[in-house]
């Protein structure tokens, strides 16, 4: 194993997102601050408690999870795509690094960005007295496993995309709609009856519901189903990516 090589990979990814910190860190923090202030504090003060908790406490885990997802996804997708676009992926290909080391290096970069973004949002939530942990272990599990999952999805898109436009497709057509319809701002019991059934097939529902349970102790989905959905997705995507890197899909000519 090339430990120094792997650490260098992570260092380079850290350098990449701290180099454009306004875009990668400040923007999600400001956006989360506005969401928490406007939806949580202002609008939330006029909304009844949901599941026995104030609206601001209910909505915070959803905002946090969406930013963890976006941070991890954007880091790996843009990093890999840019390396392919500018061809400096060749710097890595000619080095003594294994396929799995390349994948792990990217994932660690994605997870670290998600953690930094998430920690900033947590600090903002503390300012609004909305931060809490009902189950710390579960919180760490959900935050990390979902960050890994979306780092993998980011890598997949970063490999597949042939243009900058294609990079944003997943966010526009999958991440945003499924987050909003997965109970980010509302209890699923508020949805029309048909959508309440459909939401059970939305994986984002389990991600948001799981972290909400870990933070405020309230949940609407089965926690074990959520864990199974995440672990299953990790296995499938991890295997698929390992295969794609091994055959050099879109990276080796």
């Amino acid at each position: 194993m090339n430990i120094i090589g792997l650490w260098t990979f992570v260092r380079r990814e850290l350098g990449r997102f701290s180099r454009v910190a306004v875009q990668t860190l400040i923007t999600p923090w400001i956006s989360a601050l506005l969401y928490i202030f406007v939806f949580g504090r202002i609008v939330g003060s006029r909304i009844d408690n949901i599941g026995g908790v104030e609206y601001i406490d209910f909505v915070l885990p959803g905002i946090l999870m969406m930013n963890i997802i976006m941070g991890a996804f954007m880091q790996t997708a843009f990093s890999l795509y840019f390396q392919r676009f500018a061809r400096h992926i060749e710097e890595v290909l000619v080095a003594p690094l294994a396929y799995w080391e390349m994948i792990i290096g990217h994932i660690v970069g994605g997870v670290l960005r998600a953690i930094v973004v998430g920690m900033g949002i947590y600090v903002i939530a503390v300012l609004f007295s909305a931060a809490s942990f009902a189950h710390v272990g579960l919180f760490i599990f959900y935050a990390l496993s979902v960050a890994v999952l979306f780092s993998l999805i980011g890598l997949l898109i970063g490999l597949w995309a042939q243009s900058f436009e294609q990079l944003t497709i997943l966010n526009t057509f999958i991440i945003m709609p499924l987050s909003f319809l997965g109970g980010m701002f509302n209890s699923v019991s508020m949805l029309p009856a048909l959508l309440q059934k459909v939401v059970l097939f939305n994986p984002f529902f389990y991600f948001i519901d799981g972290i909400r349970y870990a933070m405020i102790g309230v949940h609407e989905a089965s926690v074990s189903t959520g864990i199974l959905v995440i672990m299953g997705s990790l296995l499938v995507l991890g295997g698929l990516l390992w295969h794609l890197f091994r055959v050099g899909y879109h990276i080796r000519v």
């Binding site: 090339n2 430990i3 120094i4 090589g5 650490w7 260098t8 990979f9 260092r11 380079r12 350098g15 710097e91 890595v92 080095a95 003594p96 690094l97």
Partner: peptide, 14 residues
Amino acid sequence: RDILDYVGGFYGMR
């Protein structure tokens, strides 16, 4: 300097 440093790291140099 960073370009050279990263490449050195990829090759396992301390």
